[in-house]
Computed example of a mutant assay.
Amino acid sequence: MFITVCEKGSFAAAAAVLGTDASTVSKAISRLEKQLAYTLFYRSTRKLTITDAGQEYLETVRALLLDLDECEQRLQSGNDSATGVLKVNLPVSYGRLYIVPLLSKFVEQFPNISLQLSFSDEYIDIIERGIDLSIRTGTVSDSRMVLHKLSPMDFLTCASKSYLEEYGPIESYKDIVNHRWIRFRFKQTGKLMPILVGVDKTVEMLDPNGYIVVDDGQVLVDICRSGVGVMQGPHFLFKDGLASGDLVSLFPPIEPEGYGVYLLYPKRDFLPRKVAVFTEFLKTELEKMGEGANYCWSSEMAYLNEWE
């Protein structure tokens, strides 16, 4: 109850998750505080605020529960079966386009694993949230995590055939400044995703003037397919549109240093089998789609144009 109150921010919200009432949760926390002889929360009519003692207690009990979970996983692994609840956090677009279509196959292979999926492009602390593993796109740096690179992150510049027919071909990177752009804004920071261009085999950033801004990757692609403008984004956004012929890739992909698609989970002495089988399953399926730690299908495509 204490951990759930910390995560949800109120007795009422915690009670809703736990299937009880706010009074029961409040009384339980009060008993815990009496037992510890410490105040764990500052209470006001508007919100709960965790105290320093409460924060220290939270870190301790989370570590204890993690140790308990590892012990249970070790015991369960004796029969070489993958069981339990697997909590996975996914980027919105990558999760929709790549992971969701694989779920039926995973569930069929591992019927004793119950999946709990959350979707978010914002950075979240998966240890704090009690999440087993996460997939992140872009750059990742966290010494507490084990990282598996699933693929490079190629950035493609694309337009629909209808747009190119109406506004003419785009012969070089010099031309794209004069075109209407559809750009992605990060919800967490409010910043626009930079436009990357290849100049003398190096990567530079471009900031065109006229553009439409959205904060959803799938909407970004849908607008581009409708013939509104030119866009740039990671390879996984364009896979279906390029395969169907709705979109045209204008230039070879750009792979910024350090960028990729990563699977990550907390460092621990014993890796739960449910995490291990999901990791291996995903790597196997991505290989079938032409993606691996050091290669991506986009690098072998034919392009409308070559380098300037």
Results as ranks from 00 to 15, higher is better:
Phe11Glu: 07
Glu165Trp: 02
Val177Thr: 15
Ser23Trp: 15
Thr20Phe: 06
Pro91Ala: 03
His235Asn: 15
Ser160Cys: 01
Tyr211Glu: 00
Ile127Glu: 09
Asn89Pro: 00
Val228Tyr: 04
Glu308Cys: 04
Glu255Cys: 14
Val61Met: 08
Tyr211Leu: 00
Ala159Arg: 01
Ser151Met: 01
Ser77Ala: 14
Ile99Thr: 06
Ile113Tyr: 07
Asp269Thr: 13
Ser118Thr: 15
Phe119Ser: 01
Lys174Ser: 13
Gln76Lys: 08
Asp246Glu: 13
Ala16Cys: 03
Leu286Gly: 01
Gly258Arg: 05
Gly198Cys: 12
Phe119Ala: 00
Trp181Ser: 04
Cys158Ala: 12
Gly54Met: 07
Thr137Cys: 12
Glu108Lys: 12
Val25Ile: 14
Phe184Cys: 05
Thr137Asp: 06
Leu66Gln: 11
Thr202Pro: 00
Pro234Ile: 12
Ala53Pro: 00
Asp175Ala: 13
Phe184His: 15
Lys267Leu: 13
Lys161His: 14
Val140Pro: 01
Glu59Phe: 14
Ala16Glu: 12
Arg273Ala: 05
Tyr173Leu: 07
Met231Gln: 04
Lys267Ser: 13
Lys105Asn: 09
Ala15Gln: 08
Ala13Tyr: 14
Ile176Pro: 00
Ile126Thr: 02
Phe236Thr: 03
Val17Asp: 13
Asp246Ile: 03
Leu102Asp: 10
Ile170Val: 10
Met231Thr: 12
Leu133Cys: 06
Asp80Thr: 10
Ile176Gly: 00
Ser114Pro: 04
Ser104Arg: 11
Ser10Ala: 04
Ile126Pro: 01
Leu58Ser: 12
Ser134Ile: 12
Gln116Asp: 13
Gly260Phe: 05
Leu48Arg: 09
Ile127Val: 11
Phe41Glu: 10
Ser299His: 08
Ser118Tyr: 01
Glu72Leu: 11
Lys187Leu: 13
Pro208Gln: 09
Gln116Ile: 12
Asp200Asn: 15
Phe119Val: 02
Val219Gly: 01
Thr39Ile: 05
Met205Phe: 05
Val221Cys: 07
Ile170Arg: 01
Tyr265Asn: 03
Asn79Phe: 01
Ser143Asn: 10
Asp222Met: 02
Ile254Arg: 04
Pro111Gln: 07
Leu32Asp: 06
Asp222Tyr: 02
Tyr123Glu: 10
Lys8Ile: 04
Phe2Leu: 11
Leu304Asn: 09
Ala53Ile: 08
Gly245Thr: 09
Ser244Arg: 10
Gln232Thr: 05
Tyr262Asp: 02
Gly168Arg: 03
Thr60Trp: 13
Asp121Ser: 04
Lys191Arg: 15
Val230Ile: 14
Glu122Gln: 11
Ser104His: 11
Glu166Asp: 06
Tyr163Leu: 00
Gly241Asp: 09
Ile182Tyr: 05
Leu192Pro: 06
Pro91Gly: 05
Phe238Trp: 15
Cys71Asp: 13
Ala53Asn: 08
